[in-house]
């Protein structure tokens, strides 16, 4: 009963906060609701026995990325943007598309069957520690993708600097 109560609260809060994020007129409000949303999603990860991902979600998403967003939103002076209409004129069409997608995936959810489970049951993960096991898998089986992701981040850093800096006078 208690797990269902917890899940119900977090699911309802996540849906409500997502709707708040996309309907606010002021971008700063959107970013702040997004921050609260990320906290709730992190709590959901905790609920699924993924402690390390909770920490990563809080540090990277809530700590680094949203601060970056907030920084840019406050850097740009958006005072006069608040007068324009919130949604585009064809928003009912977009709502129909979104609901159709929800329906299409929704009817397939009932067909989910759990396949053969892997070896990392809750007891095994609890015994060795989640971070330990995640690190072992990441640095052995997924070492090459891990290195590729580091290159992706390097490209993103260089690209962001090149895009955002002022043109030099030649």
């Amino acid at each position: 009963m208690l797990p269902k109560l917890f899940f119900g609260y977090f699911a309802a809060a996540i849906v409500l906060l997502s709707i708040l994020v996309i309907t606010r007129r002021n971008a700063v409000h959107s970013v702040l609701w997004m921050l609260l949303l990320f906290f709730h999603i992190a709590a959901l990860y905790l609920f699924l026995n993924a402690e390390f991902l909770t920490a990563v979600q809080l540090i990277i998403y809530a700590g680094a990325m949203l601060v970056l967003y907030l920084f840019v939103v406050m850097l740009l002076n958006l005072k006069k943007e608040e007068g324009v209409s919130r949604f585009v004129d064809f928003w009912p069409n977009a709502l129909v598309i979104a609901l159709a997608l929800l329906f299409a995936i929704g009817i397939s959810v009932r067909a989910i069957v759990i396949g053969p489970t892997g070896g990392y049951s809750v007891d095994v993960v609890k015994k060795a520690g989640h971070t330990d096991i995640l690190g072992r898998v990441l640095y052995t089986e997924y070492l090459f993708p891990f290195e590729v992701v580091s290159v992706v981040l390097l490209v993103a850093i260089i690209g962001a600097i090149v895009l955002a800096k002022k043109k030099l006078k030649t």
Binding site: R24, A27, V72, V88, A94
Partner: peptide, 15 residues
């Protein structure tokens, strides 16, 4: 789905 709806309907690039 809420993300898709927001992406299709909002014209504010940050949102």
């Amino acid at each position: 789905t809420i993300g898709i709806f927001g992406f299709l309907t909002r014209r504010n690039i940050i949102i």
